[in-house]
Design a protein around this nucleic acid. Structure first.
Length: 478
RNA sequence: CGGGGCGUAGCGCAGUCCGGUAGCGCGCUUGGUUUGGGACCAAGAAGUCGGAGGUUCGAAUCCUCUCGCCCCGACCA
């Protein structure tokens, strides 16, 4: 009997650490805070990439690559930006054994180097919009790390787009949030979220507006699942990026940046996993279907393996794996693949071959049924779709059940007391930063976002009692 | 950066108090019996005890220094 996984309810953090390593998603790198993404974890990332890349391209963004090393002086050009990233910056001070004249920052994000470059690419309104996206890694010094959620180097995409007007820029930032990120989380990752904008305190350093999707994890903590920033004219002014408009007048461009990181993987794990292990959302699961051949008593294994291979061929629309290991029993394989979160399992043994059928088992409900081989493909498609829908509905119900309307600070403090997450707390806030900071200090909860679907209602700020026009989403966050 | 914990075989650990030639479980290899929900038997392979210095006839164990990682808090995607 293999070691049992720590139950989620008992110790969520421990459950998470165990599952990431046991399912062979990732491991710790040699340098502190770094992460080795193993093939199974990387396959998930590749599926995420493929889904998003297609959506970015539908919005005409083009992929490019920019250098990892950024002259420190670039980083220092935008005031809020440098202040925001200073604590997390890695610096390269030696090259080839020689002290460098000017240290290089190892990119914490590429706004500065992109802006320094595209100022030479943009001269006319005819050069706009300029829509770039980078798939790369970035580096932020971290003291306290967790695989996928916070590491010193992580993978992500960073989109950088340049527009003629603030409004067009803003619309693009919103389009990416909705048509790429929200679409991905809803239709691929089966993760519900709350869309909105960040408070002044929480927004990206150097942005006019930061848009976000906030998801609720299984322990009641919120996870910022992606961000899309309208940087307005801030970087244009710091980097002097101007173009001649139709009236032959110089105008500052407006820019946006938008990103989603391997943190999304952490979100997927923490949203869908259970005490048996992971539960991969079917559309991006590295392995969507696993076939476990059952080798009968003293029988010849060859016909069963052959039958399994035929099934795999018939299911070529999907990512299918045959587990033909002869060193472990079928029971072990069932538990193993359930731990790895493969959404659909097919069992085939001698008895099934006689009857022209297979057994299909759902990872989400545990339900098993016999399926005639004639219906294999249609049944698999239907089940995978159902699993996706079930995962989404389950997570949505969890989010709804853990969203609380809070009207008094006493209740707010009660709900945020203790170690665990507090769910989403819908509370009135006056809009003042000092109140926001006091609430964080006193309860560890932060404003996750001001939701787009905020209901206009007059109320009193949860902390100071001043007038408020609507509720915002508070939570303890990752 | 503060507090705590841990470095002994691939993984998880015991051994450290009280010094005496390195041990257990899992995994791995080989052979055999098994196989529809975490199989069993037998035989094997595998460790500079995180590193450096010291004490000692003798150090995983005692002393000094050091390095690393994990967990918990403040900051962040």
């Amino acid at each position: 009997m293999a070691d049992q996984l720590t139950p989620r309810s008992e110790n969520f953090a421990e459950w998470y650490n165990q599952i990431v390593q046991r399912a062979d998603l990732a491991d710790y790198g040699a340098a502190k805070g770094t992460m080795i993404i193993k093939p199974y974890g990387y396959a998930l990332w590749e599926n995420i990439q493929a889904y998003l890349d297609k959506r970015f391209k539908l919005h005409d963004a083009k992929n490019a690559f920019f250098p990892t090393f950024i002259p420190l002086s670039y980083i220092q050009k935008e005031k809020e930006h440098v202040e925001g990233f200073a604590p997390n910056l890695w610096l390269v001070t030696v090259g080839g054994g020689e002290q460098l004249e000017e240290p290089y920052a190892v990119r914490p994000t590429s706004e500065t180097t992109i802006n320094m470059t595209v100022r030479d690419w943009i001269h006319s309104y005819r050069d706009l919009p300029l829509l770039l996206n980078l798939w790369n890694s970035c580096f932020r010094y971290e003291l306290r790390t967790r695989l996928f959620l916070r590491t010193s180097e992580f993978l992500w995409q960073e989109g950088h787009t340049f527009h003629a007007t603030w409004d067009e820029c803003n619309q693009y930032a919103l389009d990416i949030l909705n048509d790429a990120y929200l679409d991905f989380y809803t239709n691929a990752a089966a993760m519900p979220s709350v869309a909105g904008r960040k408070s002044e305190k929480e927004k990206f350093p150097g942005a006019d507006i930061t848009y976000t999707l906030e998801a609720l994890m299984g322990d009641g903590r919120a996870l910022q699942s992606c961000t899309s920033h309208n940087l307005g004219h801030n970087f244009a002014k710091s980097f002097d990026i101007r173009y001649l408009d139709r009236n032959n007048e110089l105008q500052y461009i407006a820019s946006a940046s938008w990103g989603l990181s391997t943190r999304a993987i952490g979100g997927i794990l923490m949203t869908h996993g259970d005490d048996k292990g992971l539960l991969m959302p079917p559309r991006i699961a590295p392995t969507q279907i696993v076939i476990v051949p059952i080798l009968g008593k003293r029988g010849d294994p060859a016909p069963v393996i052959e039958a399994a291979k035929r099934l795999k061929r018939d299911l070529s629309d999907y990512r299918v794996e045959i587990d033909a290991r002869d060193s472990v029993t079928p029971g072990f394989k069932f538990n193993d693949w359930e731990m790895r979160g493969v959404p659909l399992r097919i069992e085939i043994g001698p008895k099934d071959i006689e009857k022209n059928q297979v057994v299909m088992a759902r990872r989400d409900t545990g339900e098993k049924k016999f399926v005639p081989i004639a219906n294999l493909l249609s049944e698999a498609k239907q089940l995978l779709d159902h699993i996706h829908d079930t995962l989404y509905a389950r997570a949505k119900k969890f989010q709804d059940d853990n969203t609380f309307v809070v009207d008094t600070y006493a209740e707010f403090q009660e709900r945020t007391a203790g170690e665990g997450g507090a769910g989403f707390l819908m509370a009135h806030w006056c809009g003042d930063r000092t109140c926001e900071e006091a609430i964080q200090r006193e309860t560890k909860a932060t404003i996750r976002c001001i939701p787009f679907d905020q209901v206009q209602e007059i109320g009193k700020c949860i902390r100071c009692g001043s007038e408020s026009e609507g509720r915002v989403v508070f939570a303890k966050a990752y």
